[in-house]
Design a binder for these strands. Structure first.
Lengths: 349, 349
DNA sequence: CTGTTAGCGCATTCAT
DNA sequence: ATGAATGCGCTAACAG
């Protein structure tokens, strides 16, 4: 409750010029003023430690210099990396990053979007659940909407994705090529989310091509029992050797790994281990884990640059959907180095 | 470039009332209007899908409904948890959370604060490096400033911390009590940051009281060599048995653990393992890791509630510093269960 | 119960 | 090279 904010008025007064001139200065239109006035204003601003009121600027210009990034869960490494990348290029450019979490709840997502609209955000980057496409469509009429990670049929918007299908296919191929007779794919309940379905399809197609029967195991995260069931299920195969376990994402891997450890299976001797995603705890796993590294920060940077570009040239709702696919990378670790040795030994089962 | 935003004017026109009445409606001053007008406005707003312009509201009321949370690094679990907790109570309350990263760089922090001031943010929650206290002091004159995690002598501000000293003392006591003859404390270069110095002091004081010589090892994160040196250094002690290794935070633990694993030491047989912090990958470590769990989300929630409170009653710069300490919790895992067995065996060294 | 009006701080014609 | 005046969308006196 004090020290009234200094406004452009104060600066104008102190510099003995009109607010217009100060405004010009703020917008770097130096051609339109004498060297001296420029200098004077510069000084005054420094002295008074003046900072233009972004709200007023925004109200006037119908923009807010705020960009919303809506993610499913902040605790997911994917989301954190994305936010970091966005923040790291947008903040220096003078934009603020507003973070929103939806927990995958359509209602929360709807609420968030509604609020955001009122906030006059300049762009929305969203990892959507797909239940508010109409709303997103509306938003995309006035500001850029970038769908990230998950693909949906939202025309007039930009999608930034990775090649989940190809990466998963390649991963599965690798596992078979390494000599694993059976590959178990551990996933959450298949649904319409593109990441989930594409990764699974990649696995299925690879199995088909390699003439191996697919083994899909469904688990629920946070449900220990469902994880244990999987371990039970693969027990017999493991005792026969040459089995690989491939989890659909790092979160699942994170939950099931301790159980594998607990029953004494170690990779790659007992079974091959692989996962989609590359979390930050990756190097705690030994032997080094075979995984698909998603280009998360690349995605963030790409998006940030696109936005800055669009802000510069002026945004227009795209005539059609644009899909940008950044490639994932298969990183082959020791955890799947079967080396074709006859997998018979079985001392810990 | 299209669909001009609908304003309060449009609503007023459509509902056949004045903007004032609509404004009253928006601010839930229903007592001041007839049931019918209220209903009519309600309908119109629904139909038009009207959303008040937060910028204009903010400009008027000199607030922005934005709260800045400035952290050192988004990738730190501490920061993520804090943000989540803040976001989860502030977002439903209609506040947006703006996230800023400083990377511990004083200049970046200064920049961020400067920008934020212009954004008219309603509050700043900051994990500061301590190099911009004057600026923070200034900010705290107009909006709440909450220092979190790290303690500094900033009068007129609220600090939310955990009891680093006590927790570290208790941890070290525990290690000695378990029977470890020597406890190595692994830390980054000691500095003025309270968290770092207090944790170390806790360790030192416990050692003193227990009449054990302190062993402080300095490492640099990201510097593999410095980590290896530590492993070298404790080798001899380990061969004699009953040594515990206690890392000052989870990031250090994260880096040194693979090395320990590599040389074949396993806890608690070979050496006791303990760390400050409880990261999300904790359950990947086996045996279960002894650690200090910081009340991070509690801190976030506490702060969020304080802020909401202050917004309601109207903020006044506090007359004096307020320090709120939320207790950490020592979680005793298997990794330090020495059980007083004579630590002689040495088969893997 | 309802409407008129004057700013909030800034950018922007349109003058000079 | 510089200013005066207008309005962005909203809230809050101040009338009625």
């Amino acid at each position: 409750m004090s020290s009234k904010r200094i406004t452009i008025q104060d600066v104008a007064r102190a510099a003995n010029v009109s607010v217009t001139t100060v405004s010009r200065f703020l917008n770097a239109r130096y051609e339109a003023m004498s060297k001296e006035t420029k200098l004077r204003i510069e000084q005054v601003i420094e002295e008074l430690n003046y900072q233009p009121n972004a709200l007023a600027q925004g109200l006037k210009g119908n923009r807010s210099r705020m960009i919303a990034i809506v993610v499913v869960k902040l605790s997911y490494p994917f989301c954190v990396s994305l936010i970091r990348a966005l923040s790291n290029t947008l903040t220096p450019a003078g934009y603020n990053v507003v973070v929103c979490e939806t927990e995958g709840d359509p209602k929360r997502e709807a609420d968030v979007l509604k609020t955001l609209l009122g906030q006059q955000i300049d762009a929305v980057v969203i990892q959507t659940n797909g239940d508010n496409l109409a709303e997103l469509e509306t938003i995309s009429k006035s500001v850029p909407v970038i769908l990230v990670d998950r693909k949906f049929m939202l025309s007039h918007a930009t999608h930034v994705l990775t090649d989940n299908y190809e990466a998963s296919l390649e991963m599965t191929n690798h596992l078979y090529a390494e000599g694993y007779q059976e590959v178990f794919y551990i996933t959450e309940t298949p649904n319409a989310i593109s990441t989930r379905s594409e990764r699974m399809q990649g696995y299925l197609d690879s199995s088909l091509r390699c003439h191996r029967p697919p083994h899909v195991a469904i688990v629920r995260r946070g449900d220990d029992t469902s994880m244990r069931l999987v371990v039970e299920r693969i027990k017999e195969s493991v005792s026969k050797g040459s089995v690989a376990l491939y989890t659909a994402n790092a979160l699942i891997f994170h939950e099931i790994y301790p159980l594998l450890h607990h029953v004494g299976w170690t990779a790659p001797k007992k079974l091959g281990l692989a996962t989609f995603d590359e979390p930050d705890w990756i190097n705690l796993i030994s032997p080094s884990l075979t995984r698909v590294r998603q280009p998360v920060s690349e995605m963030g940077t790409w998006i940030a640059n696109l936005l800055l570009q669009q802000f510069k040239t002026g945004y227009e709702q795209p005539a059609e959907m644009h899909v940008e696919i950044l490639p994932s990378e298969l990183i082959k670790g020791e955890s799947t180095r079967l080396g074709r040795e006859d997998g018979t030994a079985s001392d810990t089962l």
